[in-house]
Design a protein around this nucleic acid. Structure first.
Lengths: 238, 238
DNA sequence: TATGTTGATCGAACATTGTTCGATAAGCTT
DNA sequence: AAGCTTATCGAACAATGTTCGATCAACATA
């Protein structure tokens, strides 16, 4: 019978009785490293095996498929995020607490865009993301809301944070590598293209193009978050 | 020199001088069909070629890569959505109009989850998604807001709609095929697992688990949308 | 009509990927 | 020593995106 080794979560080195030069944690660490360094496209079983100085077959002993590898790596990388959110002190206003937590979550995903793809999925399966959901939801327990309102509000906040961060994480097409243009330069190009459109056909786009040009993604997220929170505050007051 | 045929957008059959048994539109139609029938995983150049009764090389004559194929197919499928949003009549309250449009957009993406992946990306490149953005933004022109507030609000609404729909689009793991469990059954299983957690460690999860069990995705989205719109209304009133 | 040019088609071949599987060693129990 | 479990390894397989040269069909020009 071929069982997988029990997750040596937090235990000493080589917790299993048999000595193992590798471990699930080592595999996950290397996975996160590769993901961080070169993005999702660079993560292959062969590159991972090379980094671990082992064969591809070994990785398949710890993990049944690439899907499971990414699921577990996501959960693995979510650990520190959970700690950071736990570190948010309970303040006077529950909405302030919720805001702080949402920003921590958003920042973490922006830094590691590959998290978003498996975050939602893992919420219902893995442990860490469910705990994150729990922490995000706790402030709402101090508010005068129905369970249904709480469920919808917290889902909206997390969904908005993850969804927005996911969009930002998509790397732009080929235009960047052609010449050495950074994000601001790209934004500026798109903005100019928008400005060239007919003002009668695109009144809204013209109205906001100066804001789009050179805008800060974090500001944009915060503004949207404020809308949700303002709506929530209203709901709790009513 | 090998040029690509000018997009025969709306023109008669075989607009190019040379007769072509296929066309970019035909390729895009078949792509959307395959995507609808069997999801993103089923779309391969070979299956697409088989459906079109042609060779893979032919597809590469119309499209430079799979990325471009999906970009164009997304834009192609967004056409009817744009029409549906254009069909929303201008009403008394701009926020009501924005709500209606957002729901149309959300419904369209839920029906075709593969749209979400390239929607945001194509917003800055392709035509149709920019037009959608324009339409979504127009109601805000009738409100007392700064361009910056409009930009943030419309970005939040579209981001929330696309992001939420994208999450819903992810097909659940293997649990569905093991036994013939539908969505409600799956939800129920997860809910039961949540109920089994320690109530002291997971007070929020326990508070909302009955709402999670059997919840409707559309309701959830609408509730979140209402929060954003309520916040926006407040902003415009202040 | 003959010839060359361009638009368009086709599928074999290549590189890369996820995954399987049998061989094999290393530790542990008896 | 024998046997079982744990773990490692890489060759081999199937599927996929992509390239490329061969080839044909329509048109222009002479």
């Amino acid at each position: 019978m071929t069982t997988r080794p029990r997750s040596t979560a937090g235990a000493g080195p080589a917790r299993g009785r048999r000595r193992s030069s590798h471990s699930l944690d080592a595999v996950l660490d290397a996975t996160v490293q590769l993901l961080d360094e070169a993005g999702g496209a660079a993560l292959t079983f062969r590159s991972l095996a090379a980094r671990l100085r082992t064969g591809v077959g070994t990785i398949y002993w710890y993990v049944a498929s690439k899907e499971e590898l990414l699921d577990r790596a996501t959960d693995h990388a979510l650990g520190p995020v959970l700690e950071a959110i736990d570190a948010v002190p309970e303040g006077e206003d529950p909405i302030d607490d919720l805001r702080r937590m949402a920003i921590v979550l958003f920042d973490a995903i922006v830094e590691r865009p590959w998290l978003s793809a498996y975050f939602m999925r893992s919420m219902e399966i893995q442990v860490t993301s469910l705990r994150l959901y729990e922490r995000l939801g706790r402030p709402t327990l101090r508010m005068d809301l129905t369970p249904r309102q709480r469920f919808h509000a917290v889902s909206a906040v997390t969904g908005f944070a993850v969804g927005t961060a996911a969009d930002l994480g998509q790397e732009p097409p080929e235009a960047m590598l052609d010449d050495g243009a950074d994000r601001d330069e790209l934004l500026h190009r798109y903005a100019d293209r928008w400005r060239a459109l007919d003002a009668d056909d695109y009144p809204f786009v013209h109205d906001i193009v100066d804001e789009f040009d050179g805008h800060d993604d974090v500001d944009q997220f915060r503004a949207g978050l404020e809308l949700i929170l303002a709506g929530l505050r209203l709901e709790a007051a009513g």
